[in-house]
Design a protein around this nucleic acid. Structure first.
Lengths: 194, 194, 194, 194
DNA sequence: CATGAATGAGAGTTCATTCAT
DNA sequence: GATGAATGAACTCTCATTCAT
C-alpha cells in the first residue's frame, strides 16, 4: 500500500471514529462513513469490508493513543496519593465530559462481539487500570500515606466502581456530586484507618 | 380496550421480552416481533408503533415483577450479614447466568433514550439497591455485626461495583472466581475492623 | 395464499417467462422482472427470492402446458408415418421460429444448475420424445409402413438429431433447407429398406 | 506491438481460457481475469476492452490449436471404419470428460453473439466434422467396408447426434452407456445392410 | 506501458409502514 | 379489530471503467 493509501486509511479511521462517537456502533452504516469521509461507496470498500472491521481499527488506534496517561503531568514530588487523586480526577473528567465519547460504541460492539481476552479493549483497559492503581497503593502503603491490607483487591474494587460509574454516565444523568462522592469514598477508604 | 385486547397486548409484551433478551434492543425489528408472536404486521401496529414503545412496556412489566427480591427466602433468625450475603449471592447468580438476559437490551435502550430519572429503570434499580443495602448495613452496625461509618457510601460503593460487574459480564468473560473475589472484598470491608 | 395472490403469482411467472425468453436466464435480474411486471421491488420478493426460483416456476408451468402435442390435430386415418411427419414438422416450426423462445434460458439454467434427473425438464422432454417416437415406429413397423430393427435406437437417434438442431438454431444461422434435409434423412431411414 | 506485449497478450488469453472453462462466458468479469492473471486492472484494458473481445481471441487460438485431430494416431493399415471408430472414441472421451471444458462458454457466447458463418467456431467445427466423416464414409463405401447411399447425409446425421450428445453432457447426467449406445447405433447404420 | 486507487452506477435484499378487505 | 399484500426507502456490495502517477 502506498503512502497515500496509508494516509487515506488513517483519515477514514479517524473520521469513522467521530461517527462512532456520535451514533454508537450498531447504528452506523457504511453509508454513514462514506458520507462523513466524502469518498465514494466503492472507495471505502477498498479499505474496509464492514463497520466491524473499521471499528476494530478505531479501537486499535484508540489503544495505541492511550498509552501514557500520566505523561508529563506528574511533578517529581507527587506522592502516590497525589497521583491516584490525579488519576481519579482524569477519570471524572471523562465521565462527565458532555461531548460524545466512544464508550457507547465500545459497549455496543463488545455486547455482540466475543473476542479473545487479549483483544478485548475493555478488559485491557480494566486490567491496566488495576495494575496502575495497585502499584500506587503499594507505594503509598510503604510511605505510610495509605493503609491497605489488600492492594490488589482495593485496586479491583476501584476499577469496578469506575466501570459502574461509566455505565451510569452513559445511561442516566450522573451529577458531578455523585462522582465526587464516589471518589471521596474511595480515597477515604485508603487513608481511613489512621 | 376489551378484555381480549388486554390479553393480546400482554401476550405481545411477553413474547417481545424474549426477543429483546435474545437480540438486545437495537437489533430487534417490528418484523421480528410479528414473527415471534405469530400475529399480523398490521395487528402489531394496533398496539405498538415501534420497538421503543414496546420495550418501554416490557420494562414496565419488568419493574412490577421484581418487587420483592427477598420474599419468603429469609428465615426469622437471619442476621443483616446473612441477608446481605444472600442478596449478593442472588446478584452473582444473575451475573453468571448464561441464559440471555434483558441486560444488553436495557443498556442499549438507555444509551439512546434519555428519560426522566423517575422512568429510568436502571436508576431505580440502582437506588433501590442502595436503599436496601444501606438499611442492612445500618441494622448490622447496630447489632455490632458490621462496622461502618458511612453506610450510604458503602451501599453506593457496593452497587457501583455490582454495576461494573454486570457490564463486565456482558462484554467479556467473567469467571466465577472474579465475582467471588469482589463479593468477598465487599463483605470483608464491612466486617473488617474488628 | 389468497386467490388474488395466486393470480398475481401467476401473472409474475408469465411476465417473467417473457423476460427470460428475451434475455436468457443468466442476464435477467430481479429488477428486470420488477420492471416488466410493474410491481414494487419488495413486492416481487414476497413471491420469489431470486431469479432461479422464479425460473423453476416458469419451467413447471412450461411442463404442464406442453402435455399433449398432438391433441386434435390428428385425423383418424393418419398412419404412423403421417403422425411422425407431423411431429417433425412441429419440431421444425419451433426450430425456425424467429420469435425468442425459452430455449436459451433453459440451456443457460441447466448449464449451471444440476438437478436430479426427474426435475430436469430437458431430460424429461427428451425421454418423452423418445417414448412417443418409439411407439410410432413400432406401430409403423407392424403396419409395414416402416422397416426398423431397433425402434428405440432409431427414436433416440432422432431425438439427438433434434437436440443438435435445436442448439444449432440457437447458436448459428440454420436455414430451413438444413432442417428439411435432416427430416428427410430421418424419414428415409425408416422407409428406406423397401 | 513489442515482443513483450505479444507475450503478455498471449499469457492473458491463455489464462482467460481457464477462467472461461471454469465459469462459462456470461459469468466471467474483467475482475476475474485481472485476478487470474495477476495483472493490474488498467493493464488488462490496454489489451482488451471487455470479456467478449477476450473470448474471441480465446476462440481464435482454440481453432488454430485443433487443426489435426488424427495426427500420428493412425497406422497405415487402418481402414476407414477404424478411423471413424477412432474419431467417435475421441468424441466420447471429450463428452464424458469431467474436467471443465470451454463448451459451456462457447454456447453461452454464441447464444448472444451473432457472427457471420465464417467466424462461427461451432459452425466451422460442425462443417469440418461433416467433411471428414463424409470422406471416411465414401472411402469405406469404395472398399466395401461400409454401405451408404448418402454419405453426406449420414455424415451430417452423425454430427447432429454428436452435437445433441454434447449439449446433453452439459445439461444433465450422461452415462457412458448412453454414449456407447449412440456410437454403436451410428456404426451399425453404416455396416448394416450386409 | 503499467499500476491500482477511485468513482459511481446498479443489483440484491430487508423492513417500517400503510391500507383495502 | 385483524389481516397480510404492497410499497418504497435505505443499505450492502460488486464491478466496469477511468486516470493520475
Amino acid at each position: 500500500m502506498s503512502d497515500k493509501s496509508v494516509q487515506k486509511q488513517k483519515y477514514i479511521i479517524e473520521t469513522a471514529r467521530n461517527v462512532f462517537m456520535e451514533k454508537g456502533f450498531k447504528e452506523v452504516t457504511m453509508k454513514d462513513i462514506v458520507e462523513a469521509c466524502g469518498i465514494s461507496r466503492g472507495g471505502l470498500y477498498l479499505y474496509f469490508q464492514n463497520t466491524a472491521e473499521l471499528f476494530q481499527e478505531v479501537l486499535k488506534l484508540e489503544h495505541e493513543d492511550t498509552d501514557d496517561v500520566f505523561d508529563g503531568k506528574i511533578s517529581k514530588e507527587a506522592t502516590p496519593g497525589d497521583i491516584l487523586a490525579l488519576f481519579l480526577k482524569e477519570q471524572k473528567r471523562e465521565l462527565l465530559n458532555k461531548k460524545p465519547s466512544l464508550n457507547m460504541a465500545i459497549y455496543e460492539y463488545f455486547f455482540r462481539t466475543k473476542v479473545p481476552a487479549k483483544d478485548n479493549l475493555l478488559k485491557k483497559q480494566f486490567d491496566g487500570g488495576v495494575y496502575v492503581i495497585e502499584r500506587l497503593i503499594e507505594a503509598g502503603t510503604e510511605t505510610g500515606e495509605f493503609y491497605c491490607e489488600d492492594p490488589r483487591g482495593a485496586a479491583r474494587n476501584i476499577m469496578y466502581v469506575l466501570e459502574g460509574l461509566k455505565i451510569a454516565a452513559q445511561t442516566r444523568k450522573l451529577p458531578e456530586s455523585a462522582v465526587d462522592r464516589e471518589i471521596l469514598y474511595i480515597m477515604q477508604g485508603l487513608f481511613a484507618e489512621e
